[in-house]
Amino acid sequence: MKELSLNILDIAENSVKAGASLTRLLLDEADTALTLTVADDGCGMDGETVRRVTDPFYTTRTTRSVGLGLPLLKLEAEMTGGSMTVESRDASNFPDDHGTTVTAVFRTDHIDCPPLGDVIATVTTLIQGHPDTDFLFRHTRQGKDAVELDTRELRQVLEDVPLDSYEVLQWIEGFLTEAYE
């Protein structure tokens, strides 16, 4: 992936496919570490599946819906001296508290660290593709105000107007652009 924001888009798709009602997309920049977290309340995975998801050769057929996304993210994080972990609680064993959390740490001072890229386009693309699920996006940076967008708050204002309406998507893009300024 040319940009980290594309990995976010890719990994968040897994959460939507896992039936998440809320997917949290968190970016935290501190010193030379960039931590990316995608945490959902979807169906989760059992321990054996979690063990497999970062193995590109194991996942291609048996867990086709997971595919290459997580192995790629892991490789990219490790290439910078960082790491990636997947934690999951499956719905059958944890009926009241299930979901998956993917955490990737990138070392931003490493030459192989990809640029973050167009995070705003990732957020609007996710909302455009999945207007009926909720996303919480929060980007915290040292010495700057956090950038935050919660589709649950937008939904309260919009009532029955869908989040993927073009005017709403434009508002979201404008809101985030201003928040980053």
Partner: peptide, 23 residues
């Protein structure tokens, strides 16, 4: 197509161009 393969190949700007130009 917005799977890993599509996203890596540049599908996001294609999708957004369609959304914008259709509207």
């Amino acid at each position: 197509g917005m799977a890993t393969c599509g996203i890596a190949a540049g599908a996001r700007p294609v999708l957004n161009a369609f959304v914008e130009q259709v509207n």
